[in-house]
Design a protein around this nucleic acid. Sequence first.
DNA 1: ACCTGAACACCGTTCAAGT
DNA 2: ACCTGAACACCGTTCAAGT
Lengths: 205, 205
Amino acid sequence: MARPRSPLLSVDAIVTAALALVDETGDFSFPKVARRLGVSQSALYNHIDNREHIVELMRGRVFAAPAPVDLENSPWEDALRALVRAYRGCTVAHPRLVPLLITQTVQDLGVIGIYEDMAVVLERAGLGREAVVPAISTIDYLVLGSALDLTAPEVVWAPPEGQYPVLSRAIAGLGSVEERADAAFSFGLEVLVAGVRTQALHGIY
Amino acid sequence: MARPRSPLLSVDAIVTAALALVDETGDFSFPKVARRLGVSQSALYNHIDNREHIVELMRGRVFAAPAPVDLENSPWEDALRALVRAYRGCTVAHPRLVPLLITQTVQDLGVIGIYEDMAVVLERAGLGREAVVPAISTIDYLVLGSALDLTAPEVVWAPPEGQYPVLSRAIAGLGSVEERADAAFSFGLEVLVAGVRTQALHGIY
DNA sequence: ACCTGAACACCGTTCAAGT
DNA sequence: ACCTGAACACCGTTCAAGT
C-alpha cells in the first residue's frame, strides 16, 4: 500500500483505540492498537513518539472535561469538595488507566489547570503557601488511590479466620467494589476538608 | 549440569535479587534475575509460581519488620501517627517497588497485621465501624502515594509561564524530592489525624 | 527434586523500501 | 508525509530431557 491518499491514522484514533483496550483489558500494546486500526505496528510511530506519549495523550483525553465548578460564589469547603469530586469524576469512567498514569509525570495542561484551581481554593481556605503543594499531592493520592480500588477484586484483604478480629469485623458487611471505593473516597474527602480547616487555623503540620 | 547436589536457588535468593533489581532499575525480569543468580531462566519456576508471586514475596520482605509501636500506653492520636509512620518507613527504602505493589491484591500477612493494628487504633479513636476500612484505605493511599512521589523526577509539574500563577507560586521554593514527599506525607498524616478526630465526634461523612 | 535449553507467543522500537 | 515488512532485543511461561 505504502502512503495512502488520505491518512489511515490519526493521533485521536490511536488514543481512542488504546483507551478502549485499557478499559477492556487493563493494558494496551502497539500490536493490539495497530490490529484494531487495521494498520501495521510501525505505522503508529508516524503519529506518536512512543508508549509514554500515548499514555500522556490518554491522560489528556480523560481529564479534558471535568465538570465545571463555580469557585467564586461558594464557601471554600464546598468549592473544594466540588473540585475534588469533579477531578475524581474523570477517573471513574476509566479506572484501569490509573496504574499507567501513576508512574508517569503529569505534562497534560488540563490536569495542571485542575491543580491551579485547587491551589486557588486552598489559599482561600487559609492554608499557608508551603502547604498548598502537599495538599494537592494528598488530594492526588486520594483520587487516584480510590480510583485504583475500583479495579480491585471483590475481596481485597482476606485475613485468615480468628486472628485479626477487629479488621475482620470491619470488613464484614462491606458493600460492592464501587460502594467501597466511593466510601473510601468520601471519607478521605471529608477528612481532607476537616484537616485543611484545622491546618488553616493552627498552621504547621 | 541438571540437578545439583545442593540447590543453587532458593525463594530467598530470588526475592533478594529481584528486589535489588527493582531498587536499581525500577523493574525486574526473569532473565535478569536468572542472570544475577547464574542460573537459567526456567530454573526460577522450581521455586516460585510466576511473576505475581515474586512481587507478593517482595511485599512480604519489605513490610516484614515495621518499627514496633506501643498501641496501649499512648493517646490514639500518637499511636496512629506512630503506626502510619512505621508503615511508611517500610516503603522508604524501596520506593520503586510501590508501582508493582499497587496493582496487586495484598495477601501478605505482615501487611494484614499492620491493618489490624490500625483498625484497633481507629476504633479506639471513636470511629464508627463502617468508617474503619475507608480510613485504612485512605492511609494506604497516603503512604503508597507519597512513596511513589519519592521516585518522581525533580520537576513534577511544570506549568508554563504566566498561566497558573497560584500553582507556580506554590511550586517555587519547594525542596528536593525527598523533602517534597516527606512534606506531602506529613501534611496528609496531620490532615488524617485532624479529620479522624472530627469524624469520631460528628460521625457520618 | 532441581537444573538446562529449546520453544512459543508475546513486547517496544528502528529502519529500509515504497508511493 | 505516511504506510509496510523485516529486523532486533527484549519479555513470561511451558516442557522435554537430564541427573
